[in-house]
């Protein structure tokens, strides 16, 4: 286990993501940054992980948008399920952490990267938990771009039909997909309206406000609504580093020494301003 208690401070998580991306010379930084606060709140305040990644009674966190996996690695690092060697050796020869979610990694529940898979697996886990009469919850994180996939809507139908009250879908709605803004590539319109129409209790919130995230997740999971729940979390792709924010280029770009240092410096400033916690 980690010697330092996990705080899931967002600047710490983003710093870990930057370290991984720089040492591994990898892409998908911006889509990891957009879901940092969502993951931080889930890990810090909601997930019951029991005795470890294989505990059959654990809550399930499904990262269906597997491209943001570095944000989850950063959380698992704080949790102590991944170590410093994992972070520093990210994406180097013969190492286990891949650039997309892989169920072989302790703490990752699904193989993702091909989009539209994770939610169905999560729906199966939620159905299984209800069937076994456990209190387990399933939190499934989707991308708004991922909602182009037809299998997502198949899964939503199933979740509503079978009244999966233990399922919370969180859409990391950063407004971008691979080739541009979602409104230009494949406009999904109001996701909240669509989730409601499919039989979900749904709301739209600021996906970077940890207090609002925490309160909303708690409220939805405690509600007596007889079906699944969803949060459309409005986020900013690349959140936390000014030259990445809202720039889809950082779905693909790799860090140079200079912009790595610039990004770290920005996080330092944010931290100094807010009195955050250093790793």
């Amino acid at each position: 286990m980690s010697a330092i208690p996990a705080t899931y401070a967002s600047t710490n998580l983003r710093r870990t993501i930057l370290r991984m991306a720089y040492s591994g010379s990898t892409v998908h930084i911006a889509c990891a940054f957009s879901l940092v606060e969502i993951l931080a709140v889930l890990y810090r305040q909601h997930l019951c992980l029991g005795t470890g990644p294989k505990d059959p009674e654990r809550d399930y966190l499904i990262l269906s948008k597997g491209h943001g996996v570095m944000a989850q690695y950063a959380c698992l690092h704080e949790l102590g399920w991944l170590n410093e060697k994992h972070i520093q050796g990210y994406c180097t020869d013969g190492t286990p952490l891949k650039g997309l979610s892989d169920a072989d990694v302790p703490g990752l529940e699904v193989n993702s990267g091909s989009l539209g898979h994770g939610l169905s697996v999560g729906v199966g886990l939620a159905y299984g938990a209800l069937r076994r009469g456990t209190t387990q919850k399933v939190y499934a994180i989707l991308g708004d771009g991922e909602c182009n996939e037809g299998s997502i809507w198949e899964a939503l139908l199933f979740a509503a039909h079978f009244k999966l009250t233990n399922l919370l879908v969180i859409v990391d709605a950063n407004g971008f997909q691979a080739m541009g803004p979602t409104t230009e590539v494949m406009d999904t319109g109001s996701l909240e309206d669509k989730f409601r129409a499919f039989g979900f209790e749904a709301c739209t919130i600021d996906g970077h406000d940890e207090n609002v995230l925490n309160e909303t997740i708690g409220r939805l999971m405690a509600s007596s609504f007889p079906g699944p729940r969803a949060i459309i979390a409005r986020t900013s792709k690349g959140k936390g580093v000014s030259f990445m924010e809202g720039r889809n280029l950082w779905h693909y770009s790799r860090l140079t020494e200079k912009n790595y240092q610039d990004a770290l410096a920005e996080l330092e400033m944010v931290e100094a301003g807010r009195g955050g916690v250093r790793l």
Binding site: P56, E109, G116, H117, G118, L119, S120, V121, G122, V123, G124, L125, A126, Y127, G128, A129, R131, R132, G150, S151, E154, A155, L157, F158, H161
Partner: peptide, 21 residues
């Protein structure tokens, strides 16, 4: 009956298998 939605049905089967069924 998982409906006329085969992609989801396979994912649901995966989730069920992972939880002991």
């Amino acid at each position: 009956n998982a409906g006329i939605a085969e992609q989801n049905m396979i994912g649901v089967a995966a989730g069920l298998a992972k939880s002991g069924f």
